[in-house]
Design a protein around this nucleic acid. Structure first.
Lengths: 233, 233
DNA sequence: GTCTATAGCCCGATAGAC
DNA sequence: GTCTATCGGGCTATAGAC
């Protein structure tokens, strides 16, 4: 029996995970804003309320921390995003859900999108292999769905890769370029109503380009569903 | 009469401008890739073939160099881009030219687009005032043209700001996310043909969303014009 | 204008006491 | 696990010889 009240193993482990989570959250925000080279371990540790030396006790190095943060973002991105393939949904509904989810991610996790953008712009000096291993299969799966729709005549033929590239650009820009939008709109923050307008605009483009019929009333209904979903967070 | 052959003032000035241009070109590339904090003056100087101390003779500080590079990019961006307003062009032709020019900039000056993206993602810590002063008027002018078209019934009504946001995103992504596209397409570099496909895809979306009639044959003709234009550089 | 030298600071990472 | 102390190195920027 020791004199100091040492917490049981399960409590110590929970405490350790809390600290690690706090570090990871701060690190994601900082790396997303200033890039790998623009952040110091000191900055992250101070924001997380610990010392630089303590941070380097939980994570062996700055690079390891960055790599962990980036892969966490990539995994949460890919797992929260249902693919276009869904037997129960027609192309219009599937694309509507896809756009909604992508915009939702930009609203809920802007720093995740920005971190990814920074890494891609920098030509992925650190995580190229992780990105390739995880993104190529997702890309192939989504492209296959679009190709099938086009072969069936469900949607108009278009270059599938470029459809996806432009679609990703339109949805992720609401996280990556939010500062510019706030400035041009004269707002302090993007609101759920802005994401509704973004969604309507993007859906309109897809409907027009793919020759999809615009459902008579569903647009308004799903718009309200999205507003609820975005407000929930 | 001095013993050392001192070049005349005009020659010295030309030499100075050559060195400054070389520094600016290298600095733009480096800052665009790694962000302000990810680059050292040493790196830039070495790439430009001079010493760090010489670089700081031509530019007073790293911040001043960055600010100069960024404003050069912003100016060349805005001056090379004809606005949507052109009395001789109908909405369809004006938008087609606009998209073509934006994609052309992404092809010709990818590092300019990436530098801008990095600054916006970082919430513009250095050049916020410059961006606001130069971008707000350009945004207002383009929005005014779209609003006029919509008031006249020339194009379908859509949220003008979001139309521009998504349009910028779709065109700039071909510079900013080129690394990802190369990976997913299995190519070593994006080629003019890829930009042709991008252009067709984006134009289709605009035609559909804005209810613009698709000219019978002009699509193929302008596509070949663009291919020539892109190959020219 | 370019060189060597260096000031003054911040960085990531480690060592060892407690 | 957190602390103080510190190493070795890179950074921006300046000083002064030539």
């Amino acid at each position: 029996m020791s004199t100091t009240a040492r917490p049981p193993a399960v409590k110590r482990q929970a405490r350790r995970q809390n600290i690690e989570s706090a570090i990871l959250a701060v690190a994601q925000e900082r790396f997303a804003l200033h890039g790998y080279g623009g952040v110091s371990v000191d900055d992250i540790a101070a924001d997380a309320g610990i010392s630089k030396q303590s941070l380097l006790y939980y994570f062996p190095s700055k690079k390891a921390l960055y790599s962990r943060v980036f892969n966490d973002v990539l995994d949460s991105w890919l797992s929260n995003l249902n693919s276009l393939a869904d037997a129960d949904l027609d192309p219009h509904a599937a694309l509507e859900r896809y756009v909604t989810q992508k915009l939702q991610f930009s609203y809920d996790h802007p720093s995740g999108s920005r971190l990814f953008a920074q890494e891609i712009i920098s030509q992925a000096p650190q995580c190229a292999d992780d990105i390739e291993a995880k993104l190529v299969p997702a890309f192939r799966a989504e492209a296959a769905v679009l190709n099938r729709w086009m072969a069936n005549g469900d949607v108009a033929p278009l270059p599938v890769a470029h459809l996806l590239f432009t679609l990703w650009a339109m949805t992720q820009t609401y996280a990556d370029f939010a500062w510019q939008m706030r400035m041009l709109l004269g707002k302090k923050a993007l609101e759920p109503a802005d994401f509704d307008l973004a969604r309507e605009t993007i859906i309109r483009m897809l409907e027009g380009a793919l020759g999809l019929a615009r459902p008579a009333t569903s647009a308004v209904v799903t718009s309200q569903q999205d507003r609820r979903r975005i407000n929930r967070t």
